[in-house]
């Protein structure tokens, strides 16, 4: 499930950022390094998406996402922020946990499914607390995988 889109290297346990733009820039750079895509292109896509409306879904979570012509399959990346930043989230709460999702132009329903799945995992009771308390990247990855099993729903 989540395993298909999220590799263990794509977990950043402590990202430093002072604002929304900087946070998006940081995760774009990391995503570019892992996928070999252009960081600026990723950043622009995410920024354009945020202009339509914030991807902050509340409770300190943001799921920045967008479609790219150059990506060939769904790509996920998780970033925990050192300190919460303002994200114009739906509930106004600052964001400290981000899940980036990049989708190919033709992803269609898969894009939707992946987003819904991510939102569901993050909203699972207790998951956020454990993610925030997790010691390192491996611990975060473990929490996410553990809760992405279908029976966890």
């Amino acid at each position: 499930m989540l395993l298909d889109i999220l590799s263990s290297e794509a977990v950043l346990p402590a990202v430093k950022a002072n604002g929304k733009k900087q946070a998006l820039q940081e995760i774009s750079a990391h995503a570019a390094r892992l996928t070999g895509l252009d960081a600026h292109e990723i950043f622009e896509t995410l920024l354009q998406r945020e202009r339509l409306g914030s991807t902050g879904i509340g409770e300190g979570i943001a799921i920045p996402h967008g479609k790219l012509a150059t990506v060939d399959k769904l790509f996920g990346l998780v970033a925990r922020l050192e300190k919460p930043i303002d994200f114009d989230a739906i509930d106004g709460m600052p964001v400290d946990f981000m899940f980036l999702l990049l989708a190919p132009e033709a992803a269609g329903a898969d894009h939707l499914k992946a987003l819904a799945r991510i939102a569901r995992v993050l909203r699972h009771p207790g998951v956020l607390e454990r993610l925030r308390a997790a010691e390192d990247a491996d611990a975060i990855y473990a929490v996410l995988l553990e809760n992405s099993a279908p029976q966890a729903a």
Binding site: G53, S54, R120
Partner: peptide, 20 residues
Amino acid sequence: LGMFSFAGDALVEDVARLYG
């Protein structure tokens, strides 16, 4: 499950294109 917020002045088409 999914809950993304969009401003009232965004185009319906743009939102739709994003998610197919």
